[in-house]
Design a protein around this nucleic acid. Structure first.
Lengths: 146, 146
DNA sequence: TTACCTGCAAAAGGTTTGCAGGCTA
DNA sequence: TAGCCTGCAAACCTTTTGCAGGTAA
């Protein structure tokens, strides 16, 4: 346990070094909080957790740090289309092609993708209402602009 | 074209009738705006579009109506976890099991699901960076509470 | 020492709510 | 007519921004 913790710390230091990021106590605390959290936390959840060991941390630092981590690939975002809620008039099962840069979304009909085998363990543990595949892409125009 | 429009109107009237929803000019306008929109619009985008033909409509009505439509299954939401941004410390490709009721999210490792064949047309048109499958479920405790 | 990072406070969106008046069925 | 729906305005909540001071390298 102790050893695992040390490994995490070293991993993070090395990662920051290679990315040119300063290692600050706040960043370290936020990183540790994330690694130990299976709940896919919101920024505020991270804030509340980090504050236990680091009472003077601010929301702004948490937001900025999470953003920095994400831009450098240290963590990922569960909610890539967060700018606002978005709706789809299609209610039957289908899939989405999302441009990570301009956030355009295109539907892909269910039939165009083979059937996905839902793992038995998932079926056993949950009532599965449906699934959809989300492709992260660069669209034609964003690809050109890179 | 004219005929298709009439069909939409009738379909919507019937849908509302069967759900016990009043058919109002605002709801009709919002429904029409959605059906004609492939861009997966935000509430504000719907608002701006509807306002062209219905200048006195309010944001509140648009928000309430979209929510009503979604709760009755007339449209679907692209962003089920919109309450706030959420992060995941895992950056390698994996999938998500999301409880539609309590919004808990559990990871499913990539290997536990067979390989998905990315349609050739998608590969041709986009630079595909990755994909993830999103299972909409009721978790054990939410299932019991239904 | 220098550039980067933090924390505060204020501002900026996006979304929700309460309520009075209006409309559908 | 009764209950549902709309529009306004204010409140709310999450997230971003600017800036002055502090810290890592």
């Amino acid at each position: 346990m102790k050893k695992k913790n040390t490994q995490q710390v070293e991993f993070f230091r090395e990662k920051c070094r290679s990315l040119g990021l300063n290692v600050t106590p706040q960043r370290m605390a936020i990183y540790k909080a994330l690694v130990g959290d299976e709940t896919h936390p919101s920024p505020d959840a991270v804030f509340r957790r980090v504050r236990l060991s680091h009472p003077t941390i601010s929301h702004a630092t948490v937001y900025k740090t999470l953003d920095t981590f994400e831009r450098h690939g240290i963590i990922s975002r569960l909610t890539p289309l967060h700018e606002s809620v978005r709706y789809d008039p299609m209610t039957s099962q289908h899939h989405h092609i999302v441009c990570v840069r301009c956030k355009k979304v295109v539907n892909l009909s269910d039939g165009e993708l083979g059937t996905i085998q839902i793992p038995a363990q998932v079926k056993r543990e949950y009532r599965v209402l449906g699934y959809s595949v989300h492709f992260s892409v660069l669209c034609a125009s964003c690809k050109d602009r890179e």
